[in-house]
Design a protein around this nucleic acid. Structure first.
Lengths: 362, 362
DNA sequence: CTGTTAGCGCCTTCAA
DNA sequence: TTGAAGGCGCTAACAG
């Protein structure tokens, strides 16, 4: 079997308590004793049993990170930055915490299942990333679970999620919300100011907070230009909105559908950059030039977007910074924002994929 | 404090042993008793303490995944697929295992540190992904740690790593190696067969197995065309090789350097697709057309590569399949390949970024 | 400064 | 089929 504290203690001729104290360095120990213990540790290649330690000390070395899918750069970047902050890199005493990455695929059930699993592990913290499913029952279930976690000392951070009010006013939850609405609005305003009026919108999955916020921003910009709901232009705008997933194929398919509804549209805003690539591909396959015939804009400013050609106009979300901050907060190494809520600003990045509309094609 | 087994037992009017048996379902329990216990569990919202269970049963719910960086799609895709296999999605009894994702950043020290941390947690399995640092001392240190882990029952899988012989013939290690050499060779052969002779090579960091294998494949193709080391063409080829990181900036900078060394080169093979995007950007900034003036090829076939424009010629590695397989093997749900070693084939994907060379420019 | 003594919460023989 | 009891490996008072 594995070497235990007792083995080390025996070899060093001290009690196991002393070994524990040397290992944790949280209690005075004589220099000579310390050395003897350290030698014994090395000779025996001793490695503490984290589970036993966790049980005895009621601590945990784990931080859970819920993401839709780590393969999606949006979440990959957040997870990476977060892991960098909590991990062994930082000079954390004891080597930092381990990141448990959980792919929920956007499924409410998976989300709850993973929260239970993390509760089992008595995780030191949990970070929920990305938009939330907007369903009262599910929201309530998540809130209840988070409240229990928070009550038991687990730090909770919502990163890119709307704030959540926990029942029973349990321990605090920190929310780092992205300004999706503002970003989407500025993006559509950019297109409007270029002269576009027939703007297709390939938005995200229905029933999700991110989708709603970005769509609201888009519609707010339209409304400000007299193209709000109820107006003739507004009706057109609604006809030019298609929901889809966050993958390339969605963008491709949605674009074909949009072109069917209005062959003369001059711009498309996509749910995110990945979708925007699909939009561009579909337009190209239809013989349309970007941005000559149709302007295209994405969202998120994922790493590859600047290298697309044409380089993608998009809305930058500082994912890396947000992930790092979430990591620091969940480690208790940085003060939560006042009120537990911070709005992360987004920034319009105008690049080559948007331009003034050409003369009408249809 | 949290609800414990004893609380549930008291409420159900049974012993804690019985509750344990109901929970684990690995021992006969009378139907009525079982029901009473389950009711108590629900009423009390009981959640087992994973650490206590792990300590008592000498098991673990964790699987470690070492990656360079999850934000890099190469690793993100592997990690995602792996997590999907081991996670709560599968109908694993007990809800599957949790994936602990560790960003090593390619640092040998970080690698060892994380292996120690995972040993502390008595991880059920460890998957090491991506190339290895080729340094005898470090290789030995890793092998020693893995041997100890394997000896204590931890399943080890190397995914995209060269095989490793463990000292003391400890428990088996499964290796899923990518055929980087063959892929690189076929890629360069493709360029040669198009007529290219002045081929720049932006390869990966020095001292890493992946870099070496891809470079060997490249050089083997050249040698087969009489451009091996020692020949005049061979000398040119060596001058046209630049090492860099796996990021876009490396590709950009390396390309400027290559153009300085040979303004007339007609093709560039990049260390991977991300680097290839940087190469394309540099060429464009120099006023060169891809593939009109210079052909460019990547490696890995990352998700965005097909959407680059021009679409990237590259070598496909089935990362998702490999990650999923690694997950199944590390869970003991799939037989390891015979001999513990499988070579994952790679596939040349010819797309639009490569074409025959134009007439000489310089 | 160091040893002794209790548990942490659960699983698992051994008896009944 | 169930209960009682011991121990997994470590930490944290409490003495000394």
């Amino acid at each position: 079997m594995a070497v235990t504290l007792a083995d080390v203690a025996a070899r060093a001729g001290v009690s196991s308590a002393t070994v524990s104290r040397v290992l944790n360095g949280n209690y005075p120990v004589a220099g000579s004793t310390r050395e003897r213990v350290q030698r014994a540790v090395e000779e025996l290649d001793y490695v503490v049993n984290g589970q036993a330690r966790a049980l005895a000390a009621a601590t945990s070395d784990l931080v859970g990170v819920l993401v839709n899918d780590v393969a999606d750069p949006f979440f990959g970047v957040i997870a990476s930055a977060l892991q960098g902050e909590i991990g062994a890199g930082g000079a954390e005493p004891g080597g930092g915490k381990l990141a448990v990455v959980c792919n929920t695929g956007g499924s409410p059930e998976a989300e709850l299942t993973y929260l239970t699993l993390l509760e089992r592990q008595r995780a030191a913290g949990v970070v929920l990333t990305g938009g939330a499913v907007e369903n009262d029952q599910h929201t309530g279930a998540v809130a209840a679970r988070l409240a229990r976690l928070a009550a038991s000392g687990t730090r909770i951070v919502l990163c890119g999620r709307p704030p959540l009010s926990l029942p029973g006013d349990a321990g605090s939850v920190t929310t780092l919300a992205f300004d999706n609405r503002g970003g989407a609005r500025r993006l559509t305003e950019h297109l409007l100011s270029l002269g576009h009026r027939r703007i297709g919108c390939v938005t995200g999955p229905v029933g999700r907070s991110t989708t709603r916020h970005r769509l609201e921003g888009h519609q707010a910009a339209l409304a400000a230009h007299g193209m709000g709901p109820g107006t003739p232009g507004g009706i057109a705008a609604e006809r030019l909105t298609v929901h889809g997933g966050y993958d390339r194929a969605s963008g491709y398919d949605a674009t074909l559908e949009l072109l069917r509804r209005d062959p003369g549209l001059t711009a498309v805003v996509a749910a995110n950059d990945t979708v925007a690539l699909g939009v561009c591909a579909a337009l190209r396959d239809r013989g349309l030039d970007v941005p000559g015939d149709v302007s295209v804009a994405g969202f998120d400013d994922l790493p590859f977007s600047v290298d697309a050609s044409p380089a993608l106009t998009t809305v930058r979300i500082p994912l890396q910074e947000a992930g790092a901050r979430a990591g620091r907060v969940v480690m208790g190494r940085q003060q939560p924002p006042p009120g537990g809520l911070a709005s992360i600003p987004t920034e319009l990045m105008v690049r080559a994929s948007t331009a003034p509309p050409a003369a009408d094609r249809a």
